[in-house]
Design a binder for these strands. Structure first.
Length: 269
DNA sequence: CACGCCTCCTGTGCGC
DNA sequence: TGCGCACAGGAGGCGT
Protein backbone atom coordinates (compact mmCIF):
# COMPACT_ATOMS: atom_id res chain seq x y z
CA UNK A 1 0.00 0.00 0.00
CA UNK A 2 2.15 2.72 1.25
CA UNK A 3 3.72 5.11 -1.19
CA UNK A 4 4.42 8.75 -0.50
CA UNK A 5 0.79 9.93 -0.19
CA UNK A 6 -0.17 7.10 2.15
CA UNK A 7 2.93 7.54 4.33
CA UNK A 8 2.39 11.29 4.46
CA UNK A 9 -1.23 10.74 5.50
CA UNK A 10 -0.10 8.42 8.29
CA UNK A 11 2.51 10.95 9.40
CA UNK A 12 -0.06 13.73 9.63
CA UNK A 13 -2.54 11.51 11.45
CA UNK A 14 -0.04 10.22 13.99
CA UNK A 15 2.00 13.34 14.70
CA UNK A 16 -0.40 15.04 17.14
CA UNK A 17 -0.80 11.80 19.09
CA UNK A 18 2.81 10.76 19.49
CA UNK A 19 5.08 13.82 19.32
CA UNK A 20 5.90 14.92 22.86
CA UNK A 21 5.09 11.52 24.39
CA UNK A 22 7.68 9.17 25.74
CA UNK A 23 7.96 5.50 24.91
CA UNK A 24 7.37 3.63 28.17
CA UNK A 25 7.52 0.04 26.97
CA UNK A 26 7.95 -2.00 23.81
CA UNK A 27 6.49 -5.45 23.28
CA UNK A 28 6.41 -7.63 20.20
CA UNK A 29 6.44 -11.05 18.66
CA UNK A 30 9.22 -13.33 17.43
CA UNK A 31 12.54 -11.50 17.69
CA UNK A 32 10.90 -8.09 18.08
CA UNK A 33 11.66 -5.96 19.88
CA UNK A 34 15.28 -6.70 19.19
CA UNK A 35 18.18 -5.10 21.00
CA UNK A 36 18.25 -2.15 18.61
CA UNK A 37 14.58 -1.43 19.05
CA UNK A 38 14.83 -1.58 22.83
CA UNK A 39 16.99 1.53 22.72
CA UNK A 40 13.80 3.51 22.09
CA UNK A 41 12.52 2.71 25.56
CA UNK A 42 12.38 5.76 27.80
CA UNK A 43 12.96 8.14 24.90
CA UNK A 44 10.68 11.03 24.04
CA UNK A 45 9.40 11.41 20.48
CA UNK A 46 10.52 14.90 19.48
CA UNK A 47 9.23 14.91 15.90
CA UNK A 48 7.83 12.71 13.15
CA UNK A 49 9.21 13.26 9.67
CA UNK A 50 8.88 11.53 6.32
CA UNK A 51 11.56 10.84 3.73
CA UNK A 52 10.23 9.11 0.63
CA UNK A 53 8.26 6.17 1.98
CA UNK A 54 10.12 6.15 5.30
CA UNK A 55 8.85 7.58 8.57
CA UNK A 56 11.51 8.97 10.89
CA UNK A 57 10.66 9.55 14.53
CA UNK A 58 13.23 11.71 16.27
CA UNK A 59 14.21 10.43 19.73
CA UNK A 60 16.94 12.89 20.64
CA UNK A 61 20.27 11.21 20.02
CA UNK A 62 18.49 8.31 18.35
CA UNK A 63 15.91 7.93 15.65
CA UNK A 64 13.21 5.35 15.00
CA UNK A 65 13.20 4.41 11.31
CA UNK A 66 9.94 2.92 10.06
CA UNK A 67 9.24 1.41 6.66
CA UNK A 68 5.82 -0.10 6.14
CA UNK A 69 6.86 -2.41 3.31
CA UNK A 70 3.93 -3.80 1.37
CA UNK A 71 1.41 -4.34 4.13
CA UNK A 72 2.48 -2.43 7.22
CA UNK A 73 0.13 -0.19 9.17
CA UNK A 74 0.51 2.00 12.23
CA UNK A 75 -2.42 2.51 14.58
CA UNK A 76 -2.82 4.67 17.63
CA UNK A 77 -5.23 2.95 20.00
CA UNK A 78 -6.30 2.53 23.60
CA UNK A 79 -5.78 -1.23 23.49
CA UNK A 80 -4.23 -3.85 21.25
CA UNK A 81 -6.64 -4.08 18.30
CA UNK A 82 -8.35 -7.40 17.56
CA UNK A 83 -6.53 -8.05 14.30
CA UNK A 84 -3.99 -10.63 13.20
CA UNK A 85 -0.32 -9.85 12.55
CA UNK A 86 0.28 -7.36 15.33
CA UNK A 87 4.09 -7.19 15.33
CA UNK A 88 5.13 -4.50 17.80
CA UNK A 89 3.37 -2.36 20.40
CA UNK A 90 4.83 0.87 21.81
CA UNK A 91 3.25 2.00 25.05
CA UNK A 92 3.28 5.79 25.31
CA UNK A 93 3.45 7.99 28.37
CA UNK A 94 -0.17 9.10 28.01
CA UNK A 95 -1.40 5.52 28.05
CA UNK A 96 -2.00 5.21 24.32
CA UNK A 97 -0.51 2.40 22.25
CA UNK A 98 1.27 2.80 18.95
CA UNK A 99 0.66 -0.52 17.21
CA UNK A 100 2.57 -1.85 14.22
CA UNK A 101 0.60 -4.40 12.19
CA UNK A 102 2.24 -6.09 9.21
CA UNK A 103 0.79 -9.13 7.51
CA UNK A 104 3.58 -9.82 5.05
CA UNK A 105 6.37 -8.83 7.40
CA UNK A 106 8.22 -6.76 4.79
CA UNK A 107 8.04 -3.75 7.05
CA UNK A 108 11.04 -2.59 9.08
CA UNK A 109 11.34 -0.93 12.46
CA UNK A 110 14.80 0.00 13.61
CA UNK A 111 16.44 2.42 16.02
CA UNK A 112 19.62 4.07 14.74
CA UNK A 113 21.80 6.94 15.87
CA UNK A 114 20.14 10.09 14.57
CA UNK A 115 20.92 10.51 10.88
CA UNK A 116 22.93 7.30 10.60
CA UNK A 117 21.24 5.51 7.70
CA UNK A 118 24.03 3.11 6.84
CA UNK A 119 21.65 0.23 7.37
CA UNK A 120 19.28 1.70 4.77
CA UNK A 121 21.05 2.12 1.43
CA UNK A 122 17.87 3.31 -0.27
CA UNK A 123 17.49 6.06 2.31
CA UNK A 124 21.15 7.03 1.93
CA UNK A 125 20.88 7.41 -1.84
CA UNK A 126 17.35 8.85 -1.84
CA UNK A 127 16.54 11.39 -4.53
CA UNK A 128 14.76 14.70 -3.95
CA UNK A 129 11.36 14.98 -2.34
CA UNK A 130 8.99 15.52 -5.27
CA UNK A 131 6.87 18.07 -3.41
CA UNK A 132 9.83 20.14 -2.25
CA UNK A 133 11.91 22.76 -4.03
CA UNK A 134 14.67 20.18 -4.27
CA UNK A 135 12.77 18.53 -7.11
CA UNK A 136 14.13 20.73 -9.89
CA UNK A 137 13.01 20.32 -13.47
CA UNK A 138 16.45 21.03 -14.93
CA UNK A 139 18.19 18.26 -13.00
CA UNK A 140 15.29 15.87 -13.50
CA UNK A 141 15.19 16.42 -17.26
CA UNK A 142 18.96 16.10 -17.55
CA UNK A 143 18.92 12.81 -15.68
CA UNK A 144 16.11 11.44 -17.84
CA UNK A 145 17.83 12.47 -21.05
CA UNK A 146 21.11 10.78 -20.21
CA UNK A 147 19.76 7.67 -18.57
CA UNK A 148 19.45 4.10 -19.71
CA UNK A 149 16.85 1.54 -18.83
CA UNK A 150 13.07 1.76 -18.68
CA UNK A 151 11.73 5.03 -17.32
CA UNK A 152 9.42 3.14 -14.98
CA UNK A 153 12.27 1.25 -13.35
CA UNK A 154 14.21 4.45 -12.88
CA UNK A 155 11.27 6.18 -11.21
CA UNK A 156 10.77 3.24 -8.87
CA UNK A 157 14.30 2.93 -7.52
CA UNK A 158 14.10 6.04 -5.30
CA UNK A 159 17.40 7.52 -6.51
CA UNK A 160 16.03 9.85 -9.16
CA UNK A 161 13.06 10.86 -7.03
CA UNK A 162 11.78 9.84 -3.60
CA UNK A 163 8.52 8.19 -2.66
CA UNK A 164 7.05 6.83 -5.87
CA UNK A 165 5.78 3.24 -5.97
CA UNK A 166 4.01 1.12 -8.52
CA UNK A 167 0.65 2.87 -8.42
CA UNK A 168 1.78 6.46 -8.71
CA UNK A 169 4.46 5.71 -11.30
CA UNK A 170 1.85 4.17 -13.58
CA UNK A 171 -0.50 7.08 -12.97
CA UNK A 172 2.15 9.76 -13.52
CA UNK A 173 3.41 8.16 -16.74
CA UNK A 174 -0.12 8.00 -18.08
CA UNK A 175 -0.77 11.62 -17.22
CA UNK A 176 2.50 12.63 -18.92
CA UNK A 177 1.78 10.36 -21.93
CA UNK A 178 5.04 8.45 -21.62
CA UNK A 179 5.36 4.74 -22.32
CA UNK A 180 6.60 2.80 -19.24
CA UNK A 181 9.50 1.23 -21.13
CA UNK A 182 10.68 4.42 -22.83
CA UNK A 183 14.43 4.85 -22.31
CA UNK A 184 14.95 8.30 -23.76
CA UNK A 185 12.68 11.03 -22.48
CA UNK A 186 13.08 14.41 -24.10
CA UNK A 187 12.81 17.76 -22.40
CA UNK A 188 9.16 18.30 -23.23
CA UNK A 189 8.16 14.89 -21.94
CA UNK A 190 10.28 15.39 -18.84
CA UNK A 191 8.48 18.67 -18.20
CA UNK A 192 5.11 16.94 -18.46
CA UNK A 193 6.29 14.19 -16.14
CA UNK A 194 7.67 16.62 -13.58
CA UNK A 195 4.32 18.36 -13.45
CA UNK A 196 2.33 15.10 -13.50
CA UNK A 197 4.22 13.63 -10.55
CA UNK A 198 3.65 16.68 -8.40
CA UNK A 199 0.01 16.95 -9.40
CA UNK A 200 -0.81 13.28 -8.74
CA UNK A 201 0.96 13.17 -5.39
CA UNK A 202 -0.66 16.38 -4.13
CA UNK A 203 -4.07 15.23 -5.28
CA UNK A 204 -3.61 11.80 -3.70
CA UNK A 205 -2.54 13.36 -0.38
CA UNK A 206 -5.65 15.53 -0.47
CA UNK A 207 -7.68 12.30 -0.78
CA UNK A 208 -5.68 10.58 1.99
CA UNK A 209 -4.08 8.19 -0.49
CA UNK A 210 -5.26 4.99 -2.13
CA UNK A 211 -6.90 2.29 -0.09
CA UNK A 212 -7.40 -1.31 -1.17
CA UNK A 213 -9.93 -3.70 0.30
CA UNK A 214 -7.10 -5.72 1.81
CA UNK A 215 -6.55 -3.01 4.38
CA UNK A 216 -10.11 -2.23 5.37
CA UNK A 217 -10.70 -3.16 8.94
CA UNK A 218 -12.43 -0.14 10.42
CA UNK A 219 -9.36 0.94 12.35
CA UNK A 220 -8.04 3.52 9.91
CA UNK A 221 -9.66 6.40 8.16
CA UNK A 222 -9.44 5.29 4.59
CA UNK A 223 -8.18 7.22 1.61
CA UNK A 224 -10.33 7.20 -1.48
CA UNK A 225 -7.87 8.07 -4.22
CA UNK A 226 -8.63 4.68 -5.80
CA UNK A 227 -11.69 6.37 -7.33
CA UNK A 228 -9.40 8.63 -9.31
CA UNK A 229 -6.93 6.07 -10.68
CA UNK A 230 -6.81 6.20 -14.47
CA UNK A 231 -4.69 3.16 -15.32
CA UNK A 232 -3.73 1.22 -12.20
CA UNK A 233 -6.04 -1.77 -11.84
CA UNK A 234 -8.04 -0.68 -14.89
CA UNK A 235 -6.69 -3.15 -17.45
CA UNK A 236 -9.33 -4.04 -20.04
CA UNK A 237 -11.28 -0.86 -19.35
CA UNK A 238 -11.37 2.19 -21.62
CA UNK A 239 -8.83 4.95 -21.22
CA UNK A 240 -10.43 8.00 -19.60
CA UNK A 241 -8.66 10.21 -22.15
CA UNK A 242 -8.87 8.38 -25.47
CA UNK A 243 -11.14 5.34 -24.91
CA UNK A 244 -8.47 2.83 -26.03
CA UNK A 245 -8.28 -0.28 -23.87
CA UNK A 246 -5.90 -0.05 -20.91
CA UNK A 247 -3.20 -2.73 -21.13
CA UNK A 248 -1.29 -4.56 -18.42
CA UNK A 249 2.21 -5.92 -18.87
CA UNK A 250 5.32 -6.55 -16.78
CA UNK A 251 8.14 -4.00 -16.50
CA UNK A 252 11.01 -4.82 -14.22
CA UNK A 253 8.94 -7.61 -12.76
CA UNK A 254 6.16 -5.26 -11.70
CA UNK A 255 2.60 -5.22 -12.98
CA UNK A 256 2.41 -2.22 -15.31
CA UNK A 257 -0.73 -0.50 -16.53
CA UNK A 258 -0.78 1.92 -19.44
CA UNK A 259 -2.79 3.17 -22.38
CA UNK A 260 -1.26 1.84 -25.62
CA UNK A 261 -2.65 4.79 -27.55
CA UNK A 262 -1.94 7.87 -25.47
CA UNK A 263 1.30 6.38 -24.18
CA UNK A 264 2.55 5.16 -27.55
CA UNK A 265 6.36 4.85 -27.47
CA UNK A 266 7.10 7.45 -30.15
CA UNK A 267 5.31 10.19 -28.27
CA UNK A 268 7.99 10.33 -25.61
CA UNK A 269 11.20 9.39 -27.38
C1' DC B 1 28.21 1.13 -10.91
C1' DA B 2 23.86 -0.23 -12.90
C1' DC B 3 20.71 -3.60 -14.20
C1' DG B 4 17.85 -7.92 -13.82
C1' DC B 5 16.58 -11.57 -11.06
C1' DC B 6 15.48 -13.69 -6.71
C1' DT B 7 14.13 -13.40 -2.04
C1' DC B 8 11.75 -12.20 2.26
C1' DC B 9 6.21 -13.42 4.07
C1' DT B 10 1.23 -14.24 4.09
C1' DG B 11 -3.05 -14.16 1.89
C1' DT B 12 -6.22 -13.95 -1.98
C1' DG B 13 -8.26 -14.95 -6.17
C1' DC B 14 -8.26 -17.34 -10.15
C1' DG B 15 -8.30 -21.42 -13.34
C1' DC B 16 -8.76 -26.17 -13.65
C1' DT C 1 -15.87 -27.51 -3.64
C1' DG C 2 -10.89 -28.33 -3.59
C1' DC C 3 -6.40 -27.63 -4.98
C1' DG C 4 -2.38 -25.45 -6.77
C1' DC C 5 -0.44 -21.62 -8.59
C1' DA C 6 0.36 -16.80 -9.86
C1' DC C 7 0.31 -12.59 -8.05
C1' DA C 8 0.24 -8.50 -4.61
C1' DG C 9 1.32 -1.72 -3.48
C1' DG C 10 8.76 -2.66 -1.50
C1' DA C 11 13.40 -3.04 -1.37
C1' DG C 12 17.83 -5.54 -0.19
C1' DG C 13 21.29 -8.73 -1.97
C1' DC C 14 23.39 -11.08 -5.41
C1' DG C 15 25.46 -12.15 -9.89
C1' DT C 16 26.49 -10.39 -14.40
Amino acid sequence: MPELPEVETIRRDLSPGIVGRSIIAITGSRNWPNAQLRRARGEKVVDLRRRGKYLLAGLGTHELVIHLGMSGRLLLADGVPPVRHVRTVFELSDGKLLVFVDRRRFGVLQVVHAGDYRAFPTLLAMGPEPLSRDFQLAAFAAALESGTGAIKARLLNQRLIAGLGNIYVDEALHRARIHPTATRVDRRAATRLHHAIRHILQYAISRRGTTFSLFRDGLLREGDFARFLRVFGREGQPCIRCRATIAKTQVGGRGTHFCPRCQAPQRSS
